[in-house]
C-alpha cells in the first residue's frame, strides 16, 4: 500500500448567516461538519453527494481557498494551518484545483499562453524561453498544440477549455489535484475524452486526485475509493468496484439505486422528501427523517464513522453492533 499523502481530521466549515434581527442569535450554515479521511499517494478518491452536501467546500478547503473553522489538514504529514507565507506558497505548487465550469475558469482577457505561464512566473520558474517550452509541452500533454498559446478562451470549445484548465493545473507539476465537477458540464462524447485524459495523466505522473462529482457513473468508473457526503458529513467510505464490498449505508444505497441505468429499466427504492435545511439539521443521524430503516437511536444519537471491513467505513447505527 502506498504511503499517505493527505490526511483530513475533523475538518469543519461553518458559514455565518446575516443576523435576522438585533436580538436574534447568530445562525450558521454547517457546510462541512467534522469530516476525517486519508488519501494515499497515487490514489483517486471520489467524493459524491447531492447539492449542498459540502463536497465542493471540502475541495476548496483542501486547496486552502476556504479556511476551515475547525479541524486540521495534513499534507505529507505536515499540518497546513499556521504555515508561514513562503511555506504556504510552496505548498500551493503541490496542490492544484480544476473547476467545473470551463467558461468561468479562464480569464477571458488573457491568452491561453499567458494563463499557463502565469503560475511559472509566480513561482519564479525558468526564464522566458524555458517557460514557453514548459507551456507548450504541457499543452501537448493535454492533447492541444502550441498554436493554442496565442488564442483567447472564447475561441475554444467547452472541451478544449477544460483541457486548458487541466493544463493550467499541471504546469507546476503538483502532487495532488482537486477535480471539482470537471466533466459535469460536458457532453458525453467530450466527457469520455477528458476522463481518459485525466486517467492517463494520473498514471503517467503518479498523481493523486480528489475527484468531486455528483455523477455516480463517472465516480464509480474513475475512483479507487469513494466517500459519500450527506449534510456536511461523510456517511460512508468504500472501495469502488469490489462487488462484495458494496455500499452499506441506507443513503448510499438509495443514492446509487436512484441512478438511471442505460442497460435496464430499474425499479428503484425512491427516497422520499428533500434534503433538510443545513442551518437546522435534524438531531441524531442527519439522515433519519428520510431513512427507510430508521430506529429509535437514530433520532437521538449521532452515529460515528466506524470501520466495518478493510477500506470500508460507515456512519450508521445499524452497523454499530458488531463492535
Amino acid at each position: 500500500m502506498n504511503r499517505e499523502l493527505l490526511k483530513v481530521s475533523g475538518l469543519t466549515k461553518h458559514y455565518p448567516l446575516p443576523r435576522q434581527g438585533l436580538m436574534e442569535k447568530k445562525q450558521v450554515v454547517r457546510a462541512v461538519d467534522g469530516i476525517s479521511f486519508r488519501i494515499r499517494e497515487g490514489e483517486i478518491f471520489g467524493l459524491v453527494g447531492e447539492s449542498g452536501c459540502g463536497k465542493s467546500t471540502t475541495g476548496q478547503m483542501l486547496v486552502q481557498l476556504v479556511k476551515q473553522t475547525e479541524g486540521e489538514l495534513y499534507f505529507q504529514g505536515e499540518p497546513v494551518s499556521g504555515l508561514s507565507e513562503s511555506r504556504m506558497k510552496a505548498l500551493r505548487r503541490d496542490i492544484q484545483i480544476v473547476f467545473q465550469d470551463p467558461y468561468s475558469s479562464l480569464n477571458p482577457k488573457k491568452t491561453i499562453g499567458w494563463t499557463l505561464e502565469e503560475p511559472l512566473i509566480i513561482h519564479r520558474i525558468g526564464d522566458k524561453l524555458q517557460r514557453r517550452k514548459i507551456v507548450s509541452e504541457t499543452l501537448e500533454q493535454v492533447g492541444l498544440d502550441a498554436s493554442y498559446m496565442d488564442r483567447y478562451p472564447h475561441e475554444l470549445s467547452g472541451g478544449q477549455k477544460q483541457r486548458v484548465g487541466i493544463a493550467a493545473a499541471l504546469v507546476l507539476e503538483p502532487k495532488f489535484i482537486v477535480i471539482d465537477e470537471a466533466v459535469s458540464a460536458l457532453d458525453v462524447s467530450v466527457q469520455s475524452q477528458i476522463l481518459n485524459l485525466l486517467k492517463e495523466l494520473q498514471e503517467k505522473r503518479g498523481l493523486t486526485y480528489l475527484f468531486i462529482s455528483h455523477d455516480l457513473n463517472v465516480v464509480e468508473y474513475i475512483s479507487d475509493r469513494i466517500g459519500v457526503m450527506y449534510l456536511g458529513k461523510i456517511v460512508e467510505i468504500f472501495e469502488a468496484g469490489v462487488a462484495d464490498k458494496g455500499p452499506l449505508h441506507p443513503y448510499t444505497r438509495a443514492l446509487f439505486s436512484a441512478v438511471p441505468d442505460v442497460h435496464k429499466r430499474k425499479e428503484h427504492a425512491v427516497l422520499q422528501g428533500d434534503v433538510p435545511n443545513p442551518i437546522e439539521p435534524p438531531g441524531g443521524c442527519a439522515f433519519h427523517p428520510r431513512c427507510p430503516a430508521v430506529m429509535d437511536i437514530c433520532r437521538s444519537e449521532v452515529p460515528q464513522l466506524r470501520k466495518v471491513g478493510s477500506g470500508h467505513e460507515v456512519s450508521c447505527h445499524i452497523y454499530a453492533e458488531g463492535e
Partner: peptide, 14 residues
C-alpha cells in the same frame, strides 16, 4: 463512451 462501474480500469471509447 458512457462511464460506469462496469468499465473500471479500461480506457473509455471516444
Amino acid at each position: 463512451s458512457l462511464p460506469g462501474a462496469d468499465k473500471r480500469g479500461r480506457i473509455l471509447y471516444t
